[in-house]
Design a protein around this nucleic acid. Structure first.
Lengths: 128, 128
DNA sequence: CTAGTATATGAATATATGTTCATATATTCA
DNA sequence: TGAATATATGAACATATATTCATATACTAG
């Protein structure tokens, strides 16, 4: 069956069948994308990296990343919605921390990827 | 020194010092965010997952993810700019594949994270 | 209760993003 | 060479996003 699914000639080889099996569902794709999207902002990356060594209150985070309390609070809300950070109250302050180990691994995996790019750019053929 | 850096009272405890050390540079934050951002879209996630089992030409990808050739090409361009996929020409066709193992690990790490959310939502206290 | 501190949030605005459409480029075949 | 196929890309448009500002909420101290 070489039907048109999308306005382009469809090849429908074994490859396509296999790929369709590996393809994640719309729902999973949406969830993965939401998680990655929340990581896709320099400010939030800085917040997360600031939390690497332990919890911080919002006011401290503001200072560390040099951003207004409001901006930080909005971003923390976004991170929390994706369960990347959790919070606990201590009196007037609210302390934020990384929610689980996946976040650290995501960051370090991504760092490795970026570092590889780096070495490609600089030396041409490192990191085989 | 309890100075104002951001309009909020700065605490400047040990925590802040430590956090500032862990804090990634603007440059690194920007690069990490760019990589995550390109992963932060359902269409691109689907493309990547489709490439899990091996290379595909653009036309096949279009079919698998049910999107126009143009849209797919734009997205492949974005993925390529962040070195998440590479391409090779074979006659008229151009075959795309995942660039390195980091991408797979990023996806699977994120899947684990999402799955954890899932179990929280559904059973309440699983996956300790 | 009131004043003060810490955090959250809605509205507004400027900017970024994803898809479509039209078209350009590159390759193959006759 | 010219027609056909595969892919890439610029412009445009609708939508999403990050920050700011003003203000609301939650807690503490008195």
């Amino acid at each position: 069956m070489s039907e048109d699914l999308c306005g382009v000639n469809v090849v429908h080889s074994d490859r396509v069948i296999r790929a369709s099996t590996a393809l994640v569902s719309n729902e999973i794709a949406r969830r993965l994308a939401e998680t990655f999207k929340v990581l896709g902002d320099p400010t939030r990356i800085k917040i997360i990296s600031a939390l690497y060594e332990g919890e911080l209150c919002v006011c401290d985070i503001s200072a560390v990343v040099s951003l207004s309390q409001s901006a930080v609070s909005h971003q923390l809300g976004a991170l929390r919605r994706e369960r990347l950070v959790r919070r606990r109250r201590d009196g007037q302050k609210i302390f934020y921390s990384l929610d689980d180990e996946h976040i650290k691994r995501l960051l370090s995996e991504c760092l490795d990827h970026v570092a590889e790019e780096e070495s490609l750019v600089e030396s041409g053929t490192a990191a085989g």
